[in-house]
Amino acid sequence: MSRYVIGDIHGCAKALRSMIEELSPTQNDELIFLGDYIDRGPDSRDVVDQLIELQSKCQVVALRGNHEWMLQSVVARGLDDAMWLRSGGKATITSYGGSIQKIPGDHLEFFDALLPHHQTEREIFVHAMYNPTCEVHEQDDELTYWAHLPTQLPAPHCTGRRVFVGHTPQPSGEVLRHTHLVCMDTYCFGGGYLSAMDLEMETILQVDRHGHVRRVPVERVMMLLRGCASWFRKGEADG
């Protein structure tokens, strides 16, 4: 069984298709998506189609991002659509044929089934941010969906679990990786990459918005991990 965590897609359907082809998941494999499947990129509808199809091929854990939160609030709760449209919603509406009324029922069911967070014995997965002093299910929606990572990164989570987030774009195109925190949003729609991390081996697969694959060399992964361990030890000493 292989397990992967995958960052923000934002309508980059070609990137997602190439990534799924490269990963070639089987029924026992698990893919954990951190949210923001829609908006900004060119084909949100195709992204959701792929994710729905993927659920029949492997184990899919799909979190809700703030962009899905906005779409659901407009469609189901009557929220004014101005903020959503300014935040990339126009691209999503275009991909659905120009109207939210054209969103298929199975897509609405997919959005409704999205999770606010996911936990294992060793990991926490949440779209945006976390409160290091409380359980993730106790924190408010502002942290779960909206808050970006601050320059001074949050402390390790009180449970000792490693936290995986998206939402805060990394303009470098590199996964932000520390021993207690990993940010998987590598800015695919803005010229970076869609990134997947093997949760056991810590190897990284990246695909650009045109579907071109980039593999991070193992040597670079090991160098990054050594740097993260050094940073964490220094933080403990300073604390």
Rank of each mutant, 00 (worst) to 15 (best):
W84H: 09
V136Q: 01
I124S: 02
L108S: 04
A82S: 15
Q119R: 14
P116N: 12
E200K: 07
M184K: 07
R86G: 15
H118F: 13
V182W: 00
E202S: 11
I100F: 03
T186M: 01
V165Y: 00
G97L: 02
G192P: 04
E202Y: 03
L115T: 13
I124L: 10
I93L: 06
M129N: 15
D106C: 13
R161S: 06
Q101T: 13
M201Q: 15
Y187T: 14
T94I: 05
M201V: 08
R161F: 06
I100H: 02
L176A: 06
Q152G: 02
P132E: 14
C183H: 03
Y145G: 09
G98F: 02
T179D: 14
T179N: 06
T92P: 09
H107F: 10
L153D: 04
A128T: 03
Y145Q: 01
P150M: 07
E200A: 06
Q139F: 03
A113N: 15
N131E: 10
R177K: 12
E123L: 05
G97H: 05
T186E: 05
H137T: 02
Y96A: 02
H137N: 11
I103H: 06
V126S: 02
A76Y: 04
E123D: 14
T92D: 07
T186G: 09
S99K: 04
D140L: 08
R77S: 10
Y96M: 00
E202A: 08
C183D: 09
G88V: 13
Q139M: 03
E200M: 06
L181D: 05
E135R: 00
K102E: 00
D185T: 11
A155Y: 07
R177S: 10
R177G: 04
M83F: 05
L115Q: 15
D81M: 11
T168S: 11
E135Q: 05
G88M: 05
Y130V: 02
G105Q: 14
